[in-house]
Amino acid sequence: PMCDTIASGIWNQRAGFIELHNKPDFNKINYSIVESLRGTKDSVYFRIILPKDDALDYKNFVFNLIPYSKYDQVLKINKPEFAIPNVRIPRINFGLSLQNIEPNVDFGKGNFQRTNFMIFENYQAKDNNANFFTITLNNFNQCFYEAMDMEGQIIGIEGKKLVWRGNRYEKIN
């Protein structure tokens, strides 16, 4: 793996245990949207750009475009560049989420990493003429999307050792 950080967050010591919490920005995806013109006006085009300095593979993600219109049906698209008829999104008002469809989970085991990510809701085009939206996700790298959800995790204190998820950890310095 490219990322050596499995999880990070905030800790608090209690009587006999440690309580863990995610950092406040755990779910915060930094993005930018560039509006422009492209092709014919009867379609609306989208391009989603994920960070490239990473082991990231676009094939592992499904993009969910949420048009706010009378059709209002979430479109699930398995590629980062796509077009939809503008009749489905006449006021160019949309949300975007994505799903990681390849988490590291063994058969019969649970999953501590998130699989669904809300990028934004209810974006309204600034330019009424724009029909091409390039959406760049800046911090959505492997460390971000594979991070374990630590909210409410409890680590037991047993003498000088810690006990977490059935494993023991020994102090080394």
Partner: peptide, 28 residues
């Protein structure tokens, strides 16, 4: 105190508790 580095018994993971109350779990 709890602050410091802890290694999983099979050696594959590190837990780090910093004095500023941040923690990290790292692949070793």
């Amino acid at each position: 105190g709890i602050e410091g580095k802890y290694q999983k018994e099979n050696g594959k993971e590190l837990l780090i508790f910093n004095a500023d109350k941040t923690f990290y779990c790292l692949r070793n």
